[in-house]
Design a protein around this nucleic acid. Structure first.
Lengths: 187, 187
DNA sequence: GTGTTGATGTATCGTGCTGATACATCTCGC
DNA sequence: GCGAGATGTATCAGCACGATACATCAACAC
């Protein structure tokens, strides 16, 4: 999952690890953070696979001035997508696995929806809604079965979880709806 | 975190792994699942530490009747808390670390609030609210700064995340409020 | 000038969790 | 008697986290 996120960000512009992590955190927001402990190994893996590449450190930029980011002093490693990387990223965006429906996977996929084909978008949104609906129903059932046996706090926890799931289902329905009206299915 | 959950459930009644996992899933609801890949190693770890113990398999229970769970046929491992385990669990419930404020840790702690001291309950609820407030504020700021640069989908993702965080803050505030009125702080 | 703080930046390690997989037994309906 | 599905224990590769370490750089203070 980090793979697609990293490729997606580098597809917009070259970056180094630190910046990548910051953009990742603000892009995915609540959905995920990703620590360096997974980011750096991923960068190495992607580099070995040939999807990304390190920009030359260009020994000394005697560039004088203020506010200009032409640097890359010692130790700075700037990564960019290779041609194969771009291709690979496009392939990843065009396929949908079950991992696109869990919290983390869905957040990542949604973050790159602008570059995703609209039929794939719809498929992901509907798959996610399906999953969240099942989750909500499961919680509703379990809640109905065990409501009287639960203490106040457990009940609160469950109800909050259920409401969150229901809210997400409604949100997804809106997204699906506007996705459909924007591109009616050739009917 | 699994540790406290397992101890808490076994504190209610002895159980085997499979049942433990099911109760775990329904107890924590959306907050967490826990797979066998972590459950069984945890059980072993807890057993080695002496917090839990295996009930004797008692070769054959010729117990006749219906609905009685006196079994334990071949291969069934029923675990129960030891005296040290009960003590350890009480200690765990009485202390609050930073891990009690993230999604998983908070869900687990809340699930055993009924057995937690009320001052500790309040501390956990307030710590969680603090964290969620910070998260929400961070998202609001980042949203305000980058709103125009974002595409429709990223914006949707961020706004949904923000609303969820705000909702949780409100929910926590209600819990804190009712916690305070139920047990006014000796004032 | 020099010291200190905080942001930037790369990197590793131990620990823990997931998802997949394997396998064995028990229960119930057909 | 037999297959299906729930019950039940267990392991493994891969991934991610949180802590930690360390180095550079800008800013501002004394």
């Amino acid at each position: 999952m980090l793979e697609i996120a990293v490729l997606g960000l580098l597809n917009e512009s070259p970056m180094h690890g630190y910046e990548l992590r910051k953009r990742l955190a603000s892009l995915l927001g609540a959905f995920r953070a990703f620590s360096y402990g997974s980011l750096y190994p991923t960068l190495r893996r992607l580099q070995e696979a040939g999807w990304i590449d390190e920009e030359a450190p260009l020994e000394q930029t005697p560039a004088p001035s203020v506010g200009f980011a032409g640097r890359s002093k010692r130790g700075k490693r700037v990564y960019k997508l290779t041609a194969e990387g771009k291709e690979h990223f496009a392939t990843l965006l065009a396929e949908v696995g079950p991992e696109a429906y869990d919290d983390e996977g869905f957040g990542t996929r949604l973050a790159f929806f602008a570059q995703t084909r609209s039929d794939i978008r719809l498929q992901i949104l509907e798959g996610r809604r399906q999953r969240m609906t099942e989750q909500a129903d499961g919680m509703r059932t379990s809640l109905a079965r065990t409501r009287e046996r639960m203490d106040r706090y457990t009940l609160q926890l469950q109800e909050h979880g259920l409401e969150s799931a229901d809210r997400e289902v409604r949100w997804l329905s809106e997204l699906i709806e506007s996705e459909r009206t924007a591109r009616p299915p050739l009917g």
